[in-house]
Amino acid sequence: DEVRLHVNGHTIEFRGIDEEIFKILEEAAKRGADEEELRRLAEKLLR
């Protein structure tokens, strides 16, 4: 299960996240989070 999030012209792939987590990451990206911040956030949410 892989999703792709487009951030500042880059595509970031995440594996094993559900739609709810994806929406949180998408919102963070809209607020200016970079790839590293998004990955840290995803790790926290998946715990």
Results as ranks from 00 to 15, higher is better:
A28Y: 15
L45A: 05
R39S: 04
A42Y: 14
G9K: 02
L41V: 05
T11Q: 06
D18V: 05
D18Q: 06
R4L: 12
L46W: 09
L46C: 06
L5W: 00
K44E: 08
R15D: 07
E37M: 13
R31Y: 13
G9C: 04
N8C: 06
E27M: 14
A29I: 10
R39P: 00
G16W: 05
I24N: 03
E20D: 09
L25P: 00
A29D: 00
L38D: 00
L5M: 06
E37R: 07
L41I: 10
K30E: 07
D18K: 06
D1S: 13
I17V: 06
K44A: 07
E19Q: 13
E36P: 13
I24K: 08
K23V: 07
V7Y: 04
I24D: 02
E19F: 14
L38R: 00
G32L: 03
T11D: 11
E37T: 14
R15Y: 15
L38C: 02
A42Q: 04
I24T: 06
L41K: 01
I12T: 01
E2H: 12
I24C: 05
H10L: 11
R39Y: 15
V3N: 12
R31G: 09
G16Q: 05
L5I: 14
I17W: 03
A42G: 04
E36I: 12
V7P: 02
L25R: 00
A42W: 10
V3I: 12
L41C: 05
D34N: 11
E13M: 12
F22V: 07
L46E: 03
R15M: 11
A29P: 00
V3S: 07
E36R: 13
E37A: 09
E43V: 14
E20P: 05
H10D: 05
D1C: 11
I21R: 05
I24M: 08
E26V: 14
I24W: 06
I21D: 09
H6W: 02
K44H: 12
F14P: 01
V7E: 01
G16M: 02
L45Q: 02
R40E: 09
L46Q: 08
I12K: 00
E36Y: 15
E2I: 15
V7R: 01
E13A: 11
D34A: 08
E37Y: 14
R40C: 05
A42E: 02
F22R: 05
E19A: 14
F22H: 04
A33H: 06
G32Q: 01
G16F: 05
A29N: 04
R15N: 10
I12G: 01
E27F: 15
D18C: 07
A28N: 06
H10W: 03
R15F: 13
E19N: 11
R39N: 05
L5S: 01
L25M: 03
H10I: 13
E37H: 09
H6N: 12
F14C: 03
H10A: 07
